[in-house]
Amino acid sequence: MYPSRFRYEAPRSLDDAIALLQAGQGEAKVLAGGQSLVPLLKLRFAAPELLVDINNLPGLDYHRVDPDGTIRIGALCRHATLERSPLLVERQPTMAAAAPLVADPLVRNRGTLVGSLCHADPQGDWAAVVTALGGRVVAAGPRGRREIPIGEFVTGPFENALRYDEIAVEAVIPASKGQPAGGYLKLERRVGDFATAAAAVALELSGDVVTRAGIALCGVGPSTIDATDAGRALTGRTLTAAAIEEAADLAAAAAQPRTDHRGSAAYKRQVVRTFVTRILRNVVSTAERAA
């Protein structure tokens, strides 16, 4: 690949990295997994003056659970780590379902969850998952740290709320108050393709009653779509066939798909409806099996 000329720095501390971004005055880009940035450089769609490679920063490759159940994912935690994480299988079914569906195995070996959130691709898997879970992003800058709710962090297609001298260092998934349940389904034409449509469903259950429901969609709008009406329709109810159908219809209605080479708008809505239905039915049958 022959990108435009750029300067490359690989600092060994977060402070140094932030200082470099500050000096870059908005002409610097952070390089973590590089799975979105490097193709953009190759195609010369992006031509930053400076790349700040954060892969040498210590202590950012974690994912862990706080005693209260909050899940924290560091900026250098790779998709592949999450794919193989017993912790997610045990604690967070929506994330566990999504992790193996992110891109392809090669991308998963390098790419990061936090980097995916920063890239803010409307077809990004993690943005939908973190939205359904009501997560946050921790930004570190010269003025310290701040937490940004995911709905405010993604400000548009390929745009995020970070200031030019800030680095997203962590994603935070709030502790589940009930029994976590849910899933993630994606239709792609081929492994590694962007989603034709995908749905993330994150529930908290008390017995068989839904106490919290987040449903988010990717690939079917100009940005990640938070299908709040669909989630609200489930809250306080058991997952009856009628409740599932209502939520699936509301999720399909929330989608804003466009007809393109991946399919017609009507088709993508239908896929959203099917996926939300299938995830919710699977929650029911999993619960029935457990009982």
Binding site: D104, R190, V191, G192, F194, H261
Partner: peptide, 16 residues
């Protein structure tokens, strides 16, 4: 041309 790179021009992988 819709298919000017391997994101748009789909070659199957061992996966599928």
């Amino acid at each position: 041309c819709i298919g000017s790179n391997f994101m748009d021009y789909l070659l199957p992988t061992a996966w599928e």
